[in-house]
């Protein structure tokens, strides 16, 4: 029973994850990310860099925020490989859906002769 209890205690240390300071850091990152997204959208990155740069930057920040939420708030960082696989598979299948849909739509004509 003593041995079982030891396992039990280790288990709990493991479950504590990043603690309150860690959660506050993650929270701070998310807030800063949101504020950057809000103000970067006012800059004309499309003109300064290349068309679509505004959208790209906004989505990169969103992806970063999502990764932080999934890893730390949703505890995936400490989960088993099976959970990792499930989470990644979800996004992978969505990427397939985007890719196959767009390879169709982007290669269609406008429906008007000559265009």
């Amino acid at each position: 029973m003593a041995e079982q209890h030891n396992n039990h205690d280790e288990h709990h240390e493991h479950e504590e994850h990043i603690g309150i300071p860690g959660y506050l850091v993650v929270f701070g990152i998310l807030v800063v990310g949101t504020i950057i997204t809000y103000f970067v959208s006012l800059l004309d990155l499309d003109g300064m860099l290349f068309p679509g740069a505004n959208t790209l930057v906004a989505l990169l920040i969103a992806f970063f925020k999502m990764t932080v939420v999934v890893l730390y708030f949703m505890h995936v960082r400490w989960q088993s490989n099976l959970i990792w696989l499930s989470a990644v598979a979800g996004f992978f299948w969505m990427a397939i859906m985007f890719a196959y849909t767009m390879q169709d739509y982007l290669t269609r004509s406008t429906g008007v002769f000559g265009q």
């Binding site: 006012l42 499309d46 959208t55 925020k65």
Partner: peptide, 13 residues
């Protein structure tokens, strides 16, 4: 987190 930039911030620049 995705809906916000995709819907609200498209044309501000």
């Amino acid at each position: 987190i995705f809906l916000f930039p995709m819907l609200y911030l498209l044309g501000r620049h």
